[in-house]
Design a protein around this nucleic acid. Structure first.
Ligand code: MN
Ligand code: MN
Ligand code: MN
Ligand code: MN
Lengths: 229, 229
DNA sequence: ATATTTTGTTAGATTACTCTAACTTTATAC
DNA sequence: GTATAAAGTTAGAGTAATCTAACAAAATAT
């Protein structure tokens, strides 16, 4: 006998599905075509598990996929992803600006908040925050229609000696990296000037906050997104 | 082959279990001994479903139960319930005071927020709110050790003619009742005086907000908790 | 004291999500 | 071009939460 299994309203994506959709969206940004292995790795699940879910998402029109072929996210999938990412980033901004959490603390909490169904919670956050366009790590907050107003920033590691720059966003928002930046007093908006580039190892010598001669390795400069003043 | 199925950290109650624990706590407040039928009804699940969960909760020391005997919640169960209720009521207070939601809107959102694992979210709410002791409906917020500072208010329906009272809490926090109170401009803290009691049907004629001769039926007066001025 | 109703239990099944082990297909390397 | 490696699939199974149908025990009513 059939009965309806209710996880919230009918047709609504579960927390698990939402996490898959988000992962698919992030992977698609790096590479149009998504592999099952990457999807599994991203979500820390086995390939058969990821495969099963891809079949379900395919049936719902969220991805297209054929046997042995890479997965592609559909327009519907991207829109769903955007609504979850919107909830995530508005939450991070709210936690940071209104509740005074550090930018290294907000992601973990937002990872849970993003699955809350009641949309007006996020609309109210949006309103209280004054309709922000970026999250505390400089990533864009999609609008209610799922459109990202994506700014194309350059990596600090690409910029020449003599540049005067502002830190606009991060390519890594892990708590570890953010704690490192805290220690170095680097924030979004910090103005820096490139004093020297060591071409041998890609390290940068920069000045900021009135102090010069500060050295950062290539891997750090690769993670910092900047804009010319 | 056995493996660990992780829903959050090991030993942590799932969202479903938390809802059972909360329901058990509420039922225990009305009646020390809890029936499976009541538990099922409260959570809108079948008796076998409730029965299965009770067996699991028993194995975890959250309830005591024997075949065909009523269920009792243990001290451990009460403490767990209190932490969920604390999250719920702090959330309601935050949504109401800081995010300016109506008291009729907060319960639904808090029902989801209460399951968020990250404790510091609620500690920060507590701090921002100035360590409140009651929620927007006048119910006590348990402290971090699970202690309720329960005030024993009287029902308006028990009070005699001539009483001067303040509305302190509600015995029903459904959106429908709260919307009714909104329409009648009744809030927590509203000062009323009992002008007449119709013993035939239990209806009350009261004055408040400078207007007298306002009639409320018994079922309404039964839901309002008051304190003498 | 028996009949009826309520309450609780058992059995069998479904959905969602996950795993490991074994296999197949496709890609890469030499 | 075959050998090896990587990626994807299938099969079988487990946990958590839920259901219905059928039955058993306890409480209530007559
Ligand atoms: Mn984040
Ligand atoms: Mn998440
Ligand atoms: Mn509530
Ligand atoms: Mn809940």
């Amino acid at each position: 006998m059939e009965y309806f299994y209710i996880c919230g309203k009918r047709g609504m994506a579960s927390k698990t599905k939402e996490n898959y959709i988000k992962a698919l969206f992030y992977l698609h940004q790096k590479n149009e075509e998504i592999s099952l292995s990457d999807l599994g790795a991203e979500l820390k699940v086995s390939k058969p598990t990821a495969n099963d879910m891809v079949k379900k998402l395919k049936a719902e029109g969220i991805v297209v996929s054929e046997r042995y072929k890479p997965i592609k996210i559909t327009a519907k999938g991207k829109k769903l992803a955007a609504t979850v990412i919107r909830k995530h980033r508005l939450s991070e901004m709210f936690l940071s600006q209104i509740m005074k959490f550090g930018w290294e603390e907000v992601h973990e909490i937002a990872e849970e908040l993003e699955h809350i169904k009641t949309g007006k919670l996020f609309d109210r956050m949006d309103e209280i925050l004054g309709f922000p366009t970026t999250d505390p790590h400089g990533s864009p907050i999609p609008d209610k229609n799922g459109n990202f107003n994506k700014r194309e920033y350059r990596r600090l590691s690409e910029m020449p000696v003599g540049s005067t720059l502002i830190i606009k966003a991060l390519r890594d928002s892990s708590a570890e990296f953010l704690q490192y930046l805290n220690k170095k007093s680097i924030k979004l908006g910090t103005k820096i000037s490139v004093e020297h580039v060591e071409h041998f190892d890609g390290s940068y010598t920069i000045a900021y906050n009135g102090i010069s001669n500060r050295v950062f390795g290539k891997s750090i400069c690769d993670r910092l997104l900047v804009e010319e003043v």
